[in-house]
């Protein structure tokens, strides 16, 4: 049990580091770096924790991204930055890049490499399952990031009371 938690914590710390790395690539303000790390860490922790309980990756990503989206309201007030500045880098480690390239590799193997019909069926299956998982994760991430504005029907978080 403790080993599992330590393992999840280790992965979450690396998720936070990945979030900061991308934040620096996107040139976030220096003040936002710690926030991005904590949000990336939190999101990574929630996602890995849920995955550990065999919960579907789409749902896990939605929950983790919603956590980022909801926390971004009070954080935007306290560090005086618009929420996208730290919510987008924080969800970047959850971008389904792995599924994206699995999809494209399956498409390429299906089209160019494999001649055997039975194996081509396997690639068909891989194209659809990976492709749609990628799409649904992306939709979950953007719903999570824009959740506060969707729920509260305001144009800007500036007018939402703490």
């Amino acid at each position: 049990m403790i080993e599992t938690i330590l393992n999840i914590l280790e992965i979450s710390i690396w998720a936070g580091i990945a979030a900061v790395g991308f934040g620096i690539l996107f040139n976030i303000p220096k003040k936002a770096i710690l926030t991005v790390f904590l949000l990336g860490f939190g999101a990574g922790f929630i996602k890995t924790f849920l995955l550990d309980f065999q919960i579907n990756i789409v749902l896990a990503s939605l929950v983790a991204a919603s956590f980022v989206g909801l926390l971004s309201i009070p954080l935007a007030h306290s560090i005086h930055q618009p929420p996208v500045v730290f919510s987008i880098p924080a969800v970047i480690p959850m971008i389904p890049g792995f599924y994206a390239y699995e999809t494209v590799l399956s498409i390429m193997s299906f089209t160019f490499l494999e001649k055997d019909d039975a194996k081509r069926l396997v690639f068909m299956d891989a194209i659809f399952s990976n492709g749609f998982t990628m799409l649904f994760i992306l939709i979950s991430l953007s719903i999570g990031v824009s959740l506060p504005l969707l729920l509260l029907r305001k144009d800007t978080v500036k007018k939402i009371e703490n």
Binding site: A15, I17, A18, V20, G21, F22, G44
Partner: peptide, 10 residues
Amino acid sequence: SFAGAGFCKI
């Protein structure tokens, strides 16, 4: 590069 290493850990 650290972000890339982080992804690898994930």
